[in-house]
Each structure stands twice: as structure tokens, then as C-alpha cells.
């Protein structure tokens, strides 16, 4: 149980993990559920429990599409996507922890890829 970490994530995200009533609507609504090891309701619960290491080490945090469907439909106003974003920032702000590096880009991009995709991905996945 890491309370400092939990408080920092809550403060950073502005999301209210303690309001979660464990209904699972976020996970029911998540379009990328199938690609995740931990799912939106678990993100929220793990933050609430202060379960730092497992969550930060999980590739699931890079599978969130930030589509905000969970935020829109959560009956308790928990805003899971904002929680996940805060955890992701917590990871990539560490030294050398960028999930996407500029060197990776040429391989991933093709000539039609809009610049929007590049800047968005870098903003999400790199500090």
C-alpha cells in the first residue's frame, strides 16, 4: 500500500478513485479491453489500493486510447481515463522511460500518416 503514490496520482489526475462503486461499467465500455492485462476498473482499484509496482510495470497503461468512453459513462464520476493518464505520466517521466522514442517513428509512420498522430503519440508516450 503506497499512500504517497496514491495521493500523487489522485492529485495529478483530479479523479476521484474513492467514488468507485465497483460496477465495472468502465470495463464494460472500454473499446480496447481485449488488449489489456489490467482493465479500467482494475486501474482505479489498484490506484485506490496504492498498488504501485504492478500497475506501473504493466503494458496495459499504454493500451488506453484516451477515448474517454469510460469517463462519459461512469455513473460515479470516477474518470478512469484520467487516472490512467496520470499513472502513464508517472511512468514516462522517469529517466529513460519514454514508451515511444523519436527514433521509432520512421519505422512506424507511412507517408499518409497525419502529423497529428505523431504529435499525439509523442505527447502521450514520451516526456
Amino acid at each position: 500500500m503506497n499512500n504517497d503514490w496514491k495521493d500523487r496520482i489522485v492529485r495529478m489526475s483530479g479523479a476521484a478513485v474513492q467514488k468507485c462503486m465497483r460496477c465495472g461499467k468502465c470495463s464494460a465500455t472500454c473499446p480496447n479491453y481485449g488488449e489489456m492485462e489490467y482493465h479500467p476498473h482494475q486501474f482505479v482499484y489498484m490506484v485506490e489500493r496504492g498498488d504501485t509496482e504492478r500497475l506501473m510495470a504493466s503494458p496495459s497503461i499504454f493500451e488506453c486510447l484516451t477515448c474517454f468512453a469510460c469517463v462519459e459513462r461512469c455513473p460515479r464520476g470516477v474518470e478512469p481515463a484520467k487516472v490512467i493518464e496520470a499513472v502513464r505520466l508517472e511512468v514516462i517521466r522517469q529517466k529513460g522511460a519514454n514508451h515511444l522514442k523519436p527514433d521509432d517513428l520512421p519505422a512506424a509512420a507511412d507517408e499518409d500518416l497525419p502529423g497529428q498522430a505523431l504529435v499525439t503519440a509523442l505527447r502521450k508516450f514520451a516526456k
Partner: peptide, 18 residues
């Protein structure tokens, strides 16, 4: 519902499925 968005850069298969 989401098209996969910027994940096309890091996880193209996901973007394809979406």
C-alpha cells in the same frame, strides 16, 4: 467509438481491430 487513434504508431494491430 474510438478508431484506434494514435495507437496506430505503437500497436498497429489494435488500431486495425478498432
Amino acid at each position: 467509438e474510438c478508431c484506434g487513434g494514435y495507437l496506430t504508431l505503437t500497436d498497429r494491430e489494435t488500431a486495425k481491430r478498432r
